[in-house]
Each structure stands twice: as structure tokens, then as C-alpha cells.
Write a protein that binds this DNA or RNA. Structure first.
Lengths: 227, 227, 227, 227
DNA sequence: AATGAATGAGTTTTCATTCAT
DNA sequence: TATGAATGAAAACTCATTCAT
């Protein structure tokens, strides 16, 4: 092996910084590519080129395609986490807060379409890239969101305006299901319905439907009287 | 040119039958392979082998991988069509009929997991394989199902037990969304929730939730008094 | 092996006739295809389709692709033969006759471009498809043409108007070379000269040049005085 | 982005040199293979093996088979260019110079048989690989040769020893036609004439014929008196 | 860390030819 | 003879990964 390259400390810092940029660029490019083509269809060359770095850099930073996929998948849940601020507003009524929460989740999923596509691909792979570590990151990524749902739900239930029968976990999955579906199935649904679903107005219409529908199922008679 | 060679009807039949068998075997194998690996990840060799036919037969009958994918996608909707019988039961009350209808759709999607996976992949490709012809097949495939929903919904609405606000199209998408979601996202959801979702009992639980949740949103106060 | 199919005599005749048509159609299609793509580039399917017959007919009649190529090559020389009538006109002067002969050869090669292309391909294969039998057909195909050249040349030489130095064989090759060249090299030559050579007027111009050039080399001073 | 990585000049040189070698080896092998089998008949594997490089190197450097063919075709004309030195000798008389020029062209074409074979194949493809760029290379490749012919011809014409009627372009095509023909048609001609044409002595005989024949057509009476 | 070149294992596709009826 | 289907060998091309500098 002999003597290896010994950089100065200052230089090391600069390199780390640039490396951060390289890593991030690769991650972003990977997310896009994996979203569009899936793990199998994605091209390592394309990712490197989109990221504007040499292909070898990809291997240096991530080892191989699969680990890069894993990293990209993890980043999806980090994005959830980074948005936690927008998910709670204690000043609103429970019902209003729930409506806004569902809307916020809808908006997040719409904006992060790449993420949902990557998640879909991981499910095709039967979750085979989910290590214990990744699982922790996934959980802490969505934890604030679930906590927010739980909060508002409990508040509404104790006030008697939201159905006692509702369960956080199921509610969470229901919200995600209805929000994601529109985007992950837009093309086949458009074909079936003979209508381009990915227009601004139709997306908004579905957004309203999702909120209304969920609330219709959740609200108690008591709440309805008030509104 | 005069009379040209006229193959015997018997021969034609036999040949067509064999060819039909080959086609079907390829289609079935393709559906499985595409569902598991996606268009990009699927291996033509694997499909041919699973189908028990020569690889070239695939090209002879379908042209290439992409057209085979298209054919497999089309077959998914044919499967919907072939099940139409089970979707209507005029003897039941509207509410009961609706519950059963949702359950039947859930069961179909569970049984035909390959289909939903292929549909998901086509959506990743932004519907690029949907030709006018395929679109027609898709539409006629789901038409009976949508018609069944429409029927029951209208019946319930005229009887005052189902909300007048409900719209068939949105209801259809809602049902599909909630049914599909559990299967297309089972692995990441399992990781997030720390619980293996694909067990018989949890699947049944979600099935019940989907039906109950949708009905809770659909039913009017009038209907609730009765039950 | 058992009993084989026993057709009536009448039917046999009809079949032979149709078979003749099939053979010829295949041969024509083959000539075109081999000319355009060469032996290696030609597609058996394409030949059968162009001929309007089943691919198997091709194998029935010619054995395989290579033998079909051989047959097509042979047919090229048969075409030469079939034109022999137009190559001699004893009434004209030797010089006039020679000019016309060169022109006739030029015209034949222009009309039978497919033939020269196939010949070119056979030369690429170092004549590997030339059997003793084919060689005989080739020779008898061109024999009338060479004889015609020889006749006129001898006549002109004995009259003192054509150079005694000229040799039939070399003259024959010279004529063919100058006539063929224009057509077999038209595209690269056009590119080099920056002019589309395959126009009617430029072809005619080259035709005149070939005749004039050859005659300029052949004629003696004596003949020139006369003209 | 600031300063980017600067590979040392030495490294670049070494890499380029190696790559240059790989490219050249591939080009040489390709010329041979394409000459022998044509574009359709050539085997990419064979080319790579002959070149002693990995098959993928071929795709890395040339993109695909067709582009490699194009590159090989271009190289043919580069070879013409590289020989320009041998085509002019101002000390000789016009007639002597012309004789030598024709001989030099003959010798070049004999030595570069691969080139003429590739050119023939490109003509079969109707010049479909001739891009504007390639056309420029072709033109500049043959330009010195045509210029040399032009020079000597003009000199001879002004001295009255070469026919005023002669035109450079036509003379150029005539020379090439007569020189190339012997090699591109040797096998079928051998069969027709019943004599192996590709022997040293017969080749030399044709060489003499070509020169003599062309000069016979070109020289004026005046020149003949002198000789 | 960066880069151009290289590599080997695979993957889709093609194609001449044969089979069964 | 005619035909649709089948087949195996080979061909072009792809792609993740590694090497040398």
C-alpha cells in the first residue's frame, strides 16, 4: 500500500464541504432517476451526469447502485421530517385542524412525487432494502406527522366532535392512501375516466374530496349540528 | 392466381389452439414477471422460461418486451371484466349491497396483486404504453364495476340512505385507493408501523376498516337510525 | 415414411406451372434484395414477402439462402444472354457498330443495376459461390457479347480503322469497367464531386464520354481522317 | 464552483495515447472486417478481437457498428490523402508524368483493396453514411490526387501533347474506374475468362493496358510523332 | 477525490431454418 | 406444396463496476 495521500487540515475541510455538495447532488439526481425509472430502470451514468459529477464519485460516496437507492429512499423520509413544523396548529378547532392537517399531507405528497414513486418501487422489492437503521429513519421521519394526527384526533374525540371509533394508525394510512393514490395512479385513471386528471383544478377537486370524505367519516353528529 | 391452398379447418383449429396456449402462457408469465420486477427489471428470458416456451416465441407473438408489457397490462383489465358477475346483487339493501361491493373489489385486488403492481409500473411510465385501443379495453374492463357502484349508489340515494353528495367517480377512486394502498404499500408501512401488515388477520382488519370507513362517510343519518 | 401424397397428373401440371411462378417470383425478389443488402444483409423473410410466397416455399425451391443467392447470381448472366439480339448490326460501319455496341452494353448495365450489385457482392465473397455449373452459365451468358465485340473489332482492324493493338478481352473488360463504374460508385463519386451523378443528363454525358473515350483509344489515324 | 480538479498534463497525454491506440486498432480491424464482409456481414465481436480490445471499447469509442463503419470509411480517404506526396513529379514530361500518375493510382488502389471494398459497400447503401463532415473528409482526401491529374493534364494540353477535349473530372473517374475494376471484379471476371486474373503477371499486364489505353485516348498526333 | 478508459457478464433482439399439420 | 408456429444459435448492444493515473 505504501504511503497514502496526506492532505492538510484546511484542504480537508474544503474537500468535505465539496463532498457534501457532491453527495447531495448525487442524492437529488438519484431520487429523480429512481422515481422515474425504478431501481432496475435507473441508469448509473444518468444519475452521475444529472448530478454533474464523475461516475466514480458515485461509487466513492455510495458504494453501488443499490446502496444509493437505499440512501435516496432514506432521504424521502427525511423530507417528511423536515416539514414537521407545518403540521400542528393548536389554535384551530379540532375539526379545522384536522382538515388542515390532511391538506398539508396532501400538499407534501404532491410536491414530493419523486418520493412516493421511490417508495412504490421499494414496495415492489418487498421492502428488501429496509435495514434496521433505515427503518429507524423512516419511523422518525413520519413520527411527527402521526403524532400530529394523533393529537388532533384525541382532541376532537375528547371534545366529542370526532368519532371515538377512529384509530390513529388506520386514519394515518387512510389519509396517505387517498392522497398518494391520485398521484401514483393518475395516468391509468385518466385513461379509464377519459379525462386528464393532472390538471390544477382537478387536483384541487380531489384534495377537497379527500378532506371532505375523511371528515364525513370522522365527524360525529354533534359536530355536524355546529357547522 | 386461381385457387390458393386451403388449409383444412381442423388444422387451423389445432394450430390456433396451440398458439393460443403459447400466447396465454406467455401472458401469464409476463404478468408475474412484470409485477415482480417492473418493465425494466423483468427478464425476457425468465418470462419465456416460466411460460415454458422458446424465447423467440415471445418475439413471434408479441414483437418485443414493451409490447408484451402492453399486452400484459391489457390483460389486467380483462381480468376485471371477467369478474363482473360477482358485483351485483339486487336482492340486498343498498347499504348491504354497497358493503359487499366494496368487499368484492377488495378481494379482487388482493387476489390480483400482480395486476395492481403492473398498473403501478405503467403509471411510473406516465401511461406511455396506453394506446387508444388499450384505453378502450381498460374502460370496458372497469365499466361493469363502475356501473355496479353507480347502481347501488343511486339506489341508496333515492332511498335516502346514502348521501346525495357522493359522486360515482370519486367514490370509485376512493374505493380503489383504499383497497390498493394496503397491498402496494404494505412493506414500507409495515416498517413504519413496526408490524407485519400482510397477515391474514391484519388484512381482514383493514378490509373491515375500508368498508366501515367508506360507509361512515356515505351513510345518511336516516340509515344510521335503522342500523 | 409410409404412403406419401399422390396427386393426379393434371393436378401435377398445374402445380408445376404455379411452382414456376413461385420460383420466378422468388428469384426476382431475391435479386432485388441481394442487390440492395448483399448476401449477408438480405433477409429471407423479406424475400419471401416480396415474392408473395411463404418462407417455406423458398426453402422448398432453393434449399437455403446461399443457394438462392447462387441462383440469383446465375440469373444475372441469363439476362445478358437474353439480350444478345441487340448486339450486332452488320450493316453499320465497324466504328459505328462499335459505338452502338458500347452504348448497348452501357444501357444493359444501367437497366440491370441489381445484377451488377449482386456481382459486386459475389466478388466480395471471392467468387466462393461460383460452381463449375454456374461458371458455364456465366460464360455462355456473356459469350454473345464478347463475340459481338470480337466481330466488330476484327472487322475494324481488317479495314484499318481500329487499332491492331487492341485485344478483345481487354477491350471487353474496359467497356464493362467504364460502364459499371458509374453506377456502382455513383454515391461516393457524387459526394466527392459535389454533384448528384445519377441524373438523366449526367448519365447520358458519361455514356457519351465512355463511347468517345474508348473510340479515341481504338481508332487509327486513318479512321480519323474520314470522320 | 471554484477550482475544479485539474488532471496533470502527463496523465492526459498517456491516457490519450492509449485511447488513440485503441481507436486506431479498432479502425484498422474494422476496415479489414468491413472490407471482407460488408457492413451487414461484419461481426462486431470479430473486429474487437482482431483489434485486441474489449468489445465494449468499440462502443465506447464509436457508439455502434454503423458509426464505426462510417469512421472506417472516412479513414479510407485519409489514406488517399496521406499518399499525396507520391503524385507529382514536375521534372518529367507531361506524358511521362501522366503515365506515372496513373500507375501510382493503380498501385495505391491495389495496395488499399480494403478501402475500395468498403467504398463499394457504402455505394450499395446508396451513400447513406455520408454526412456533411464525412463528405468534406472525402473531398480533401482525393483533392491532391485530382489536383495532380489536373496539373499534368493542363501542362500537356498547353504543350499540345494531350487532347484539349479531355476533362479532369471525367479523366479522374476513368482512371479510377479502370484501376478499381480489375480488383473489385476479379473473381467473376476470372470465371468468365477462365483464367485466374489475380496473378502478379496478369495484374501487371492490366496495369500496362490501363496506362496505354488511357494515353492512347489522351495523346494528340503531335505527341505521337515524338515518341 | 477526480477522471477517461476499460471490462465482463448479461440482455434484448435477430435470423436462418425446421416442424407439424 | 402451403402455412403458422417453433427453435437454437448468434448477433448487437447495455450496464454496473473497476482500473490506472
Amino acid at each position: 500500500m505504501g504511503k497514502t495521500y496526506q492532505p492538510s487540515v484546511r484542504r480537508l475541510r474544503a474537500e468535505q464541504k465539496r463532498a457534501q455538495g457532491t453527495r447531495q447532488a448525487l442524492l437529488d439526481a438519484a431520487l429523480r432517476e429512481f422515481a422515474e425509472f425504478g431501481l432496475a430502470g435507473a441508469r448509473v451514468d444518468a444519475i452521475a451526469e444529472t448530478a454533474g459529477v464523475n461516475k466514480q464519485a458515485l461509487y466513492y460516496h455510495f458504494g453501488n447502485k443499490e446502496e444509493l437507492f437505499q440512501a435516496a429512499l432514506a432521504s424521502v423520509y427525511d423530507h417528511f421530517l423536515s416539514e414537521q413544523g407545518g403540521w400542528t396548529d393548536p389554535d384551530k378547532s379540532a375539526i379545522e385542524a384536522m382538515r388542515e392537517l390532511i391538506g398539508a399531507i396532501f400538499d407534501h405528497l404532491q410536491t414530493h412525487g419523486d418520493g412516493t414513486a421511490v417508495i412504490a418501487d421499494e414496495n415492489r422489492h418487498r421492502g428488501s432494502h429496509i435495514t434496521a437503521d433505515l427503518q429507524r429513519r423512516m419511523q422518525s421521519g413520519v413520527a411527527p406527522m402521526i403524532a400530529a394526527i394523533d393529537n388532533v384526533l384525541k382532541r376532537g374525540q375528547s371534545q366529542g366532535v370526532l368519532s371515538k371509533a377512529a384509530d390513529v394508525t388506520q386514519l394515518y394510512m387512510t389519509i396517505i392512501a387517498l392522497c398518494m393514490f391520485y398521484f401514483t395512479n393518475a395516468y391509468t385513471m385518466s385513461a379509464i375516466l377519459g379525462r386528464e386528471l393532472l390538471t390544477k383544478s382537478l387536483i384541487q377537486q380531489w384534495r377537497r374530496h379527500v378532506i371532505d370524505f375523511i371528515m364525513a367519516a370522522l365527524e360525529t353528529r354533534k359536530s355536524r349540528k355546529r357547522t
